[in-house]
Design a protein around this nucleic acid. Structure first.
Length: 197
DNA sequence: CATGGGATTGACT
DNA sequence: GTCAATCCCATGC
């Protein structure tokens, strides 16, 4: 598998990128977490911000692969994506949940919560826990910017499901989760350990 | 220029 | 299960 510190990792089908990001580690400053949930978005499909073409908001989405696309959601939260596919194609992998690895006390302080499972089990939660804000939109994820994504140290068992919180193209199975992680956001997809009989 | 709608979360019934 | 917070931006007149 390609290395997420190289641009080629992101210059592939956004679905492959999303799937391969599960198990990788995101670091920002002293805080880091293992990715346990990712969704893919592509310009050909109406749930993607790039569906309506190049606008001021989506400029980074169409930029070179390996950039962070950070945008404001519901006027309140920052959501972190990895820009994927070739430059000029609007596609990105939305990082939706992490298992805290490093800097857990700093995460607790930023989140105002104690339970480790609740620090990063949602896309707006993990940016708050890591201290990632909108000013990091457009920065590199390849190790030469403030946010870094490091390779897997193990091979996760991945379950797929439909994406969360959208009302267009809801049927596409473009959500990828670590089947065994306790930090996946709800609702859990079919086949997730917490949901098994 | 006015309006409507989110790739969410946390609090509450 | 419901709901408000909150603000940028895409859309339409």
């Amino acid at each position: 598998m390609p290395d997420p510190r190289e641009r080629g990792f992101y210059a592939r089908s956004v679905h492959d990128v999303a799937c391969d990001l599960v198990g990788c580690v995101v670091r920002h400053g002293d805080a880091a977490g293992r990715i346990v949930e990712v969704e893919s978005y592509h310009q050909e499909e109406p749930a993607c911000h790039a569906f309506n073409g190049l606008t001021p908001r989506t400029e980074v989405l169409f930029g070179p692969p390996g950039l962070a696309y950070v945008y404001r959601s519901y006027g309140v939260h920052a959501l972190l994506n990895a820009v994927s596919e070739d430059e000029g194609v609007g596609a990105a992998a939305l990082i939706r949940a992490l298992e805290p690895v490093d800097g857990i006390d700093a995460m607790r302080a930023r989140r105002g919560l104690e339970r480790v499972e609740d620090l990063c089990n949602g896309p707006g939660k993990l940016t708050q826990a890591l201290g990632i804000w909108l000013d990091l939109n457009g920065t590199s994820l390849l190790g030469d910017g403030p946010i870094e994504i490091l390779p897997r140290s193990d091979e996760p068992e991945i379950v797929t499901g439909t994406r969360i919180g959208i009302n267009k193209a809801v049927e596409l199975p473009w959500r990828f989760c670590d089947a065994r992680s306790a930090c996946v956001s709800r609702p859990w997809p079919p086949g997730h350990a917490r949901r098994r009989r």
